[in-house]
């Protein structure tokens, strides 16, 4: 999604003279065009994430909405207090851009993974976390972020292109069963591609991808699907606590929906204490195609 992100940032910077971009010394082979096109509004703040977020808050106070870019765990965890205090409680338009959310940095190891980022950020006041699932979602998310003028987090990963025309919005309706669905699968982020693959050939399963945490809205389509299926499977590249499954369960319970079953597949950390690429960690956590197929067939039987 870095390519789509850089292209959209370029066009936003061309039309909005106030925007400022800060990077924590990252962006090789992605941000060079922005750096050369907007030298006054592109700041390499060095390997100093806490200061970078404080700077962004000061810039935002003075009327410059900011993007703050780093590898997801460095942007989120290292600078958490600055995000909480300097940005969020003042409702400043600062977007924390975390590249490689979840296991996106794969073999780079645990230091570079962010599987609790949404649990950390989504409860903060005024904060909306945007988690694009497909490459095309990035542009939509950035438009929302700039328009909203508040604190936000953009969790970038390696997203596939849209498999076919789908509805863009807070909820991507990826697949809709023609008839009565037997199961409603709800995903977040690039792991949607595993769900899509696992569901190939199944005609009685709905698939939705939710773009934000907190969940901004549950569409009539998703509520209708769950009301009919009464079975929900959540797939998220995030630990169980504080992620999509918990948010969703609370909202569905409040909406009075009665469910026959509610299952969630989550990031499980490093169960074998070994490391590999993103697919390897997805498999370790049961977020791989094979396990999703297995769970779907169990729930769908």
């Amino acid at each position: 999604m870095r390519k789509e992100f850089a292209a959209k940032i370029n066009s936003l910077f061309a039309s909005n003279q106030d925007l400022v971009f800060l990077t924590g010394d990252l962006g090789y082979n992605a941000l060079e065009d922005i750096q050369s096109a907007y030298p006054n509004r592109f700041i390499n703040a060095g390997v100093a994430e806490q200061n970078m977020v404080g700077l962004a808050a000061g810039l935002a106070y003075e009327g410059h909405p900011c993007f703050v870019y780093s590898i997801a765990p460095f942007a989120v965890y290292r600078a958490y207090e600055q995000i909480r205090l300097d940005v969020c409680i003042h409702n400043h338009p600062v977007c924390i851009v975390g590249n490689g959310g979840g296991y996106g940095y794969g073999i780079m190891g645990a230091t570079h993974h962010a599987t609790k980022d949404l649990a950390c950020l989504s409860p903060l006041p005024n904060m909306i976390c945007y988690i694009p699932a497909f490459a095309e979602d990035v542009e939509y998310c950035l438009d929302q972020i700039v328009e909203r003028k508040g604190p936000s987090y953009l969790r970038l990963g390696l997203g596939i292109q849209y498999p076919k025309a789908i509805t863009i919005g807070p909820i991507n309706q990826v697949v809709q069963a023609i008839d009565k669905p037997a199961l409603t699968v709800i995903t977040q982020g690039p792991v949607v591609k595993n769900a899509l693959k696992a569901m190939e050939g199944l005609e009685n399963v709905d698939l939705f991808s939710i773009l934000t945490l907190p969940i901004l809205t549950l569409s009539p389509e998703i509520l209708n699907s769950i009301a009919l299926s009464k079975r929900v499977l959540v797939i998220e590249e995030h630990v169980e606590r504080g992620g999509l499954a918990e948010y969703l369960l609370l909202q569905l319970t409040r909406a009075g929906l009665k469910l026959d079953s509610f299952e969630a597949l989550n990031a499980k950390g490093y169960p074998s204490k070994t490391y590999g690429n993103q697919d390897f960690h997805w498999k370790e956590s049961g977020l791989d195609v094979e396990n999703i197929q297995h769970i779907i067939s169990k729930l769908n039987s």
Partner: peptide, 13 residues
Amino acid sequence: GHGFSIASGMSQS
């Protein structure tokens, strides 16, 4: 340890 960074951002602006 917060104010110096914020002030630097304001100065940059």
